[in-house]
């Protein structure tokens, strides 16, 4: 008879590693897309010039999807959140309407990521972003936040 214990350590064993042909995401795919990351100085200067919309598009275009370095991702995330929070709620709708589908998807990823690290008043602001981005991207863009392997 197996002994009933309250230990749950066995649940954390990665049994898949013992399977010789277990599924791995193709590495070649990852190297195909060149690693990019947003230029902090450029974005900061765009914000200070009042061109927050350009700063946002710049940050979304250069989102560091393909890098594995958590520091670069963290830095890009902080920077993008800074841009998002610097934009007044009244301007959000107009800016969102100028983004293409791909940028909306990336924006949605940053919005959800932003909910994970709330700062004072940030979540309320991000909810406004979420509402406007959802109005354009629909349920599809939320689904893509959940399914895409490339995280921000």
């Amino acid at each position: 008879m197996a002994k009933n214990t309250s230990s749950t350590a066995f649940r954390k064993i990665d049994v898949d590693q013992y399977n010789e042909d277990n599924f791995k995401v193709d590495e070649t795919m990852e190297s195909l897309t060149p690693s990019s990351f947003p230029d902090e100085a450029e974005i900061i200067s765009l914000i200070s010039l009042g061109k927050s919309d350009e700063a946002l598009i710049n940050a979304l275009k250069n989102a560091p999807f393909s890098t594995k370095n958590p520091q670069i991702k963290e830095k890009a995330l902080r920077l993008t959140l800074k841009v998002l929070l610097s934009i007044k709620p009244s301007q959000i709708e107009e800016i969102v309407s100028r983004l293409d589908v791909e940028q909306i998807d990336t924006l949605m990823k940053y919005i959800y990521k932003g909910f994970e690290i709330p700062s004072d008043g940030s979540s309320a602001h991000l909810l406004v972003w979420h509402e406007k981005a959802f109005a354009v991207g629909g349920l599809g863009c939320i689904i893509r936040v959940l399914t895409d392997n490339k995280r921000v």
């Binding site: 193709d26 795919m29 893509r144 399914t147 895409d148 392997n149 490339k150």
Partner: peptide, 10 residues
Amino acid sequence: FTNSPYIGGW
């Protein structure tokens, strides 16, 4: 064919 450049989506 791969579904997307971001790999996501079975």
